[in-house]
């Protein structure tokens, strides 16, 4: 977001679009990246609930992968997965993993909305 001058900012420091932190990427904090093996996953949705970064997608009551734009790689999902379907992979080996197109799009949309 370009930094605005004092005449352009909402008064009193208010942030008018609650939830706009989506625009801010925290995915670069990661050292390890969680990768889910959907063949093993039982869609218990625990990881979705317990992810501190709200970075796990839910679709049709199923765990639908990661928002890698925001996942910080804490490893809680791997730790609590009851069927060991999640593996933490070093970021340097991330080429093996498909890009998070959905996450990129979400950020673009949020930024567009802010304009």
């Amino acid at each position: 977001m370009p930094e605005k001058g004092w005449r352009e900012l909402p008064i009193g420091g208010k942030i008018l679009q609650g939830g706009n932190s989506v625009e801010y990427e925290t995915g670069s904090w990661r050292t390890y990246r969680p990768v889910v093996d959907k063949a093993k996953c039982i869609n218990c949705m625990r990881c979705w609930l317990l992810c501190p970064d709200s970075a796990i997608y839910a679709e049709g009551e199923e765990m639908a992968g990661y928002d890698y734009m925001h996942c910080k790689g804490c490893g809680i999902c791997e730790e609590i997965c009851p069927v060991d379907a999640i593996e933490m992979v070093l970021e340097s080996e991330k080429d093996k993993i498909p890009a998070d197109e959905r996450g990129v799009k979400a950020i673009e949309e949020a930024r567009e909305k802010a304009k």
């Binding site: 939830g19 706009n20 932190s21 989506v22 625009e23 801010y24 990427e25 925290t26 904090w29 990661r30 317990l50 992810c51 501190p52 970064d53 709200s54 970075a55 928002d67 734009m69 925001h70 910080k72 790689g73 804490c74 490893g75 809680i76």
Partner: peptide
């Protein structure tokens, strides 16, 4: 929403 700056693995935000 995602994009907050709590530490990775913060128990409180969960």
């Amino acid at each position: 929403a995602p994009g907050h700056r709590a530490c990775a693995g913060c128990g409180s935000i969960i």
